[in-house]
Design a protein around this nucleic acid. Structure first.
Lengths: 333, 333
DNA sequence: CTGTTAGCGCGTTCAC
DNA sequence: GTGAACGCGCTAACAG
């Protein structure tokens, strides 16, 4: 048995046009006709062929979500937020993880934006190259970028307030906890979040009139291992810091491991602070002091921006939403 | 400018059929013609309209992944595994989170399987009702179920070896660590993984000739909080266990919290073991002894089963793959 | 080797 | 209020 509007039309003894109208609640169809058609549709468990509909309408009702390789709960949360918002508005979500390779981000972007499979795109990047930027300019479909980029002219942007988060954290550590010699383990050089966090750190130190010691800024890779090495480097200096602010929680965990290896106690011998408030941070001993980010909200906001644009009711100018962060006090400082 | 095979045909001065063949590497097209066509396609940055192609072929090249509400890295890992396998085979992945409500699982299943949006489905369930089972039987498209269900006749199944994992863990705790009075915090009653873990626990006790004390089996909900309450209940018994096996790591974390509140030390005063080896378990103090599950592999396997079936080269009978688990020794026992 | 044509299921004119 | 006819971009069958 077929299962199309043609079949329903045959059974209801009307034309396919009438069926189409009835199923889409077109007010021109007589009520009795509409009811009859809808009943038949239910009986044969009719579902519109979304491929056919999308083809006819040039619209898939799918939004694409492009992310680097999935790690942490960070990505789960974003997916969750996007998906919830999408479903609530009749859209599906297609996830593409690009495995952190620059080439594949561009590829994925290019593919998705030109093959008409998705109506709009949400891109989560942690770094930005010329190639990516170029590809972003050529999508031709509505685009929302999640990330601490400079404002893009053709895309809405959702950014986490990394600067403020770091700035507030340092201020808190100095004014409330009395730290003066604050080191920083940065993230990978090109990482946008990492860069903004570093700027917040530097700005806070400057504002507070504290020493900015170049030796106290060590580069990390956002991994536990790199956090541990950075910690060891810092602890081998003649003039040691009294607190280490790691640009993410994973590296802070590395510091815990480093401290354990050296027999140093936190926060007695050295204070540790992180950024992200990932799930595990709550269970570290002592509980990590860090900066919390409402990640699900990031996803929801991104989806919401995209959907409103797809609905066509939005102005043409791009928008930028900043998601604020908050200090999560722990016992590591 | 249009961007379709019609446009390419116009420029190359051939028919659209030839263009279609050339782009799909049909061997019947003369090489020079094919090269010319492919060059033109590249020049105008042509991408096939996937909606149109899918419509014509009655095939979307999308696989659907239905999951309960996303929690833990468990789901991230599954998505990662599925997505990697799918992309490698020219498929896209559509994620639908059903928010743990029975009704919506059935809805999603029904919708996905009848609207022709996906070619096949992977369903991850932690519980199974009659309604779900019925819906599963009516999909009409290839289906892979991830979960410790009884064998389904019309779906391939990927299951984690919960039974063996629990059985081995208990055996290890008894023979290597000398525990004799082993309590168990179960998962939610209908949860399939939880049930199998309990069976493994009971079977091991029986086999080892150890007492099965009903008071030592307390129901939990797979949450930290429920683990904590269960712990408190167990510790208030006259005859206390010397080890608690929690059916998942989250509840084991609850036990840690409970122990902390009562001033009990792990493993000196009470041993704790879990199941899952989630990321955080490595950072608990002391490190949790638990059972590890290669989750990415679960996703990969599921996708692989589905794709091979979609490729049509597979036999009709359903297959079942059991993913084995392994003890992760920690310092909590 | 290549062209012509039908048809996939749907929404949407344009008639009546 | 309803129907007939068209077209979306592509693949496949058939014809040459």
């Amino acid at each position: 048995m077929k299962n199309s509007i043609t079949e329903i039309a045959r059974r209801a003894d009307v034309s396919i046009a009438t069926v189409s109208r009835a199923l889409n609640n077109d007010s021109r169809v007589k009520e009795s006709t509409r009811n009859r058609i809808q009943r038949i549709a239910r009986e044969i468990n009719y579902r519109p062929n979304l491929l056919a509909r999308g083809f006819a309408l040039k619209r898939s009702n799918i939004i694409g979500l492009i992310m680097p390789e999935l790690v942490d709960e960070y990505f789960t949360e974003v997916i969750k937020g996007v998906e919830a918002e999408a479903i609530a508005n009749g859209y599906y979500t297609m996830v593409a993880s690009t495995h952190n390779r620059e080439g594949s981000i561009v590829d994925t972007l290019d593919r998705f934006s030109h093959n008409r499979m998705v109506d709009g795109l949400i891109l989560l990047t942690t770094f930005q190259t010329a190639a990516t930027k170029r590809a972003l300019g050529e999508t031709g479909i509505p685009l929302v970028v999640i990330g601490d980029d400079p404002l893009l002219t053709h895309a809405d942007v959702v950014k986490i307030d990394n600067f403020q988060g770091a700035y507030s954290l340092i201020s808190y550590l100095v004014s409330q906890k009395g730290y003066r010699k604050i080191a920083h383990i940065t993230g990978p050089p090109g990482n946008l979040d990492a860069n903004r966090r570093k700027e917040g750190y530097l700005a806070a130190l400057a504002k507070l009139g504290l020493e900015i010691n170049p030796a106290w800024m060590v580069e990390g890779q956002f991994t536990i291992e790199s956090g541990k090495s950075a910690f060891q480097r810092l602890m081998s200096l003649n003039e040691k810091p009294d607190l280490i602010f790691a640009a993410n929680d994973r590296m802070a965990i590395g510091c815990y491991e480093g401290a354990g290896a050296l027999g140093l106690r936190i926060p007695t011998d050295i204070g540790i602070a992180g950024f992200d408030d990932i799930f595990v941070s709550r269970f570290l001993t002592p509980r990590l002091t860090t900066v919390g980010v409402p990640i699900t909200e990031v996803g929801k906001t991104a989806a919401s921006l995209l959907l409103s644009r797809l609905a066509g009711t939005e102005p043409l100018r791009t928008r930028e939403v900043i998601i604020s962060t908050g200090i999560v006090p722990g016992d590591s400082v």
